[in-house]
Amino acid sequence: MLKAENLGYRVGTRWLVNDVSLHVEPGEFWVIGGANGAGKSTLLRLLSGELAPHSGHVELKGTPLRAYEPRALARLRACLAQDLSASFPFTAYEVALMGRIPWQGQWASRPHDHYIAKEALAEAGVAHLESRDYPSLSGGERRRVDMARTIAQEPKLLLLDEPTNHLDAKHQIELMEWCWRHTRQGGCAVAVLHDLNLAARFADRILLLKDGHAAALGTPEEVLTPENLRACFNLECVIWRHPSGCPWVVPVDTAQTPRFHPPVARCNAGLQGAAS
């Protein structure tokens, strides 16, 4: 569905993204990982059509991204950007309804649009916030309202830039589950994620970027190895197993990491003694 060939983007003489190719099939959930400044967000913006690449090209459903009208493109792909702030007192419901803009005419919203916006708020778990002012919500709540807007857009392709920012542990899982279900229903998703364990749990394919290059590409099993993680993040890790069987990345202490605190260890030991 989404095909990028030899993508490159530079600012001045510095290549932020250099020679990256990827081919996202319908039904696939991709995660882009990498250290800060590795070019993840830039790559996502190239895939969304927001930036024009200096080399290579992007195709969506066999048509070059440049050939799409913005509105036609917005009916196929939706983006969740990193951090949003609205300076005007829109309600959460009004923000979710904005996801319907690519499908609407100039003025009136059809009952169908209202129905979909309400459904999207419920899907994102924020139906109870619908009449609240969007700017007065907490960071995590705003994030979920933004997700509702993205859902209301009914895209085939979801592009998410660190979608789990500000979310608590449970809502992170819920959001990833929603994206995963979206891909199982024939859509596809590309998400920039910092949490490698969430990536390992949900992604079909992981692309690790290092200095704008593709450092590793494949299934979580193939990509999440101590060698790749050392190369990309300069971090020592061991790979354990999640109860579900997927890889579980555990960073190992460096020389600077504080030692595990003995009193806590004793406390834990005491609790275990009491239980047995």
């Binding site: 009916r75 983006c79 609407q104």
Partner: peptide, 23 residues
């Protein structure tokens, strides 16, 4: 006068407005 919906999208941000199909 007829810019209401487009301005709503623009209030979220230039990038968001583009993502919602606004030129």
């Amino acid at each position: 006068a007829p810019l209401g919906r487009a301005l709503n999208a623009l209030a979220l941000g230039d990038r968001e407005a583009y993502h919602l199909g606004i030129p």
